[in-house]
Design a binder for these strands. Sequence first.
RNA 1: GGUCGCAUAGCUCAGCUGGGAGAGCACUUGCCUUACAAGCAAGGGGUCAUAGGUUCGAGCCCUAUUGCGACCACCA
Length: 877
Amino acid sequence: MKKELGKTYDPQEIETGIYEMWEHGGYFKPEINPEGKPYTIVLPPPNITGQLHLGHALDCTLQDILIRYKRMQGYSVLWVPGEDHASIATEVKVTETIFAEENKTKEQVGREKFLERAWKWSDYYRNQIATQLRKIGSSLDWSRERFTMDEKLIEAVKESFISMYNKGLVYKDYRIINWCPDCKTALSDTEVDFEEESGNLWHIKYPLLDGGNFVIATTRPETMLGDTGIAVNPDDERYTALVGKTAILPLLGRELPIVADSYVDKEFGTGCLKVTPCHDINDFEIGKRHNLAQVLALDENACINENGGKYCGMDRYEARKAVLADLQEQGLIVKTEEIAHNVGHCYRCKSVVEPITSMQWFVSMKPLAEPAIEVVKNGQTVFVPDRFKKIYFTWMENVRDWCISRQLWWGHRIPAYYCDKCGYTAVAKEAPEKCAKCGCLSFTQDEDVLDTWFSSALWPFSTLGWPEDTEDLARYYPNDVLVTGFDIIFFWVARMIFSGIEHTGSPPFHHVYIHGLIRDPQGRKMSKSLGNGVDPLEVIERHGADALRAGLIAGTAAGQDIRWNESKVQAYRNFCNKLNNAARFALINLDGYDPSTTVPVESLESMDKWVISRTNDIVKEVSANLDKYELGIAFEKLYSFFWDEFCDWYIELVKLRLSGEDGSSKLAAQWTLYHVFIKLLKLLHPFMPYITEHIYSCFIDDEKLITASWPEFSEAYCYAKEEAEIGEVMAAIKAVRNARAEQGIAPSKKSTLYIAAQKEWVDVFNANLETICRLASASHAEVVLPGFEIGDSLVVSIKSSTITIPLGDLIDKEKELKRLETEKSKTAKEAERLSVKLSNASFIEKAPQAIVDGEKRKLADAQALLSEIELAIEKLV
RNA sequence: GGUCGCAUAGCUCAGCUGGGAGAGCACUUGCCUUACAAGCAAGGGGUCAUAGGUUCGAGCCCUAUUGCGACCACCA
């Protein structure tokens, strides 16, 4: 205990050094607890498109708290860091950079050069992210760091793709998909965000071949260039006669068969639907059911193609205008209605997505979804909070096949090779030497890459070495916990679960802890476009990582959104300062104390036993909260115990003994102070790792807090009697302080206290007289016999005793009278309420005995107090 | 349209299986009391959204209503 602490807490000074010490000391490796049971958390790998935001900080903090808790409990904890290559997002950013720097498109640069740039980008940002993760305090095992584009992980992706292909779970097909005309790639259903927009619903006349016409409503008139039919509801009497006949597509003159399909809603619009199989997901299905032709009218830029006649080459919005103008001219527009409808946008670039038909790779979801639903139903995988499993189920039960090919360069290139001569498809890790069909020797690899989430889905086991049979995989898989936000359940959680089951036979983790989103002070989502994002590093610079961590998790509940306010972080920065100063106090007063000293239990005083017992309670509660993932509650308990009980009471109570002459009493106080303080540091460590480790090092040289053992609850430390005794002493001090404050008596005016205690409390008060004087601004205190009376004095009552404070010149009589009057009416009201309650027969009959007794006791107390107050009033007047 | 969440102190939010409501910030008053003014002590402030119901007893359970938010689906 040599080291000294500064007078105020300075995070800058301590954090970096401590992190390096931990990391270089190998404290983050699971091997630090070689005998321990394995415990693993899956870190959601941040993507490399930019800096970390508060959401990541929250993610990391929650996980790090769990990891540190388990590590201290002796588990062999594994937490693997890594990053995600973020195919689309990175490709967009790199393309932009290239354009800004060289004024070239990615096609002009070429695939090879482009990938070089992308790798440079990823190296830079991976580094940034790793630094940020460290600063937050994450105790990740960096020796096992992974990246989704690592060679080994590429192997895993190939293995996964090929094995699913061989089982028929991965297939290639010409189907309707979501197309982003700006990213120029296919998207999966999850990558499309629907937003409500106001638009027009145009009612357009379609002539019939045999004369007459139909009116059809549409919000996207340009897609009529791809119409290949008309559909009506089979039960719609208005149209039954027309089914089987033919309509003529205006502008292009194409013949459109009229079919009946129950998908059509009789009530909506005019009750008939133009069918555009290549540009609408539902129309695609209708087209298939009725064998309608497929006419693709848009190209990859969302411009009209050669099937669109004179509109060929126009952008989709230009074409819309032109089509409408021509229809108008021909008098075919019946009316224009304003409506609100949902429009799909690309989740990365926000462009309006076009559904179009295209040749793509898919994952067949039905067979994968079934077991994935089962493991959650039977409790192998548990969502916390429970309600999120419902969201998971509805998605899994209705999921469509997953489009996994992307027309991009940055990512895992699809391991499919096509024979240059006969087109034969070989799915394999490397290009085959010879075509199995025609014997041709040259193959071309599929140009496309896989959806980023395809590799993310393998993360929980690919990072452990799968498909190889590694030691890590055997020891640490399945993982224990995944912590993430609800926004990512479909993108990632669901896909990890079915991929894990498919490839390893087990779901990838036991618990999924879902947290909320961090919102700005106005409750809005944090986003780049609003510019309301908060950089966690700046917060760390201002208040320290410990304060940030506490500010993020204190008083939050799982799954609930968190509104960001920095004043909360500031409050926990203050708490760090409090910790620092409590530690200073301890260090000063433990000067010369030998930690190996043992003290006989008999020499411990009530106050020692009280604080030991209370700390013991807290150990039990905090551990229980952590086991239930109630991290916010756990921390708040520690916060208020440390501040309100340990600092404000215990330290104040022992001060006299620590500076006193009585050797054995002093030693007992030191022993208690030391051990309780160390225990509290341990309990706080998972939440505020830096400051606690720093302080710990001032007390103990040869051990690091990060691997110290987590305190355990013990019956031997339960001192209910002493808890009650000190509770009474505290009540006495509070009562006197309160009375004096209400009377406006200056703290410098010391008084005498006469404590008339019930027999069994006499010893307790006698043992603590000096302390009571010190804390209640008294110059003298003594225990007197019950019935003690003295004129002209202030009288306060607590459970066990009545305290008389002679007034002398201390007090204002009128004020005191007023106080007593209000006190009297309050007490009378309370007594009234209680007696009404106790006169209720059914209450007495049906309520548990303990409750009834409690109420009776309260009534007796209130009545006693009432008569005392009356007495005091009499005396005053 | 379907599903879910939230309404508690001036503000931001906790409140576990039902036993007369808590924290942080803000506010009032008094204190530089030798760990800490980023502090100490005392205090004010809440018909726990509304209306019913269950219960001896409801912030908590049930029903309905209102307001806010999210997610999914989708209407051409």
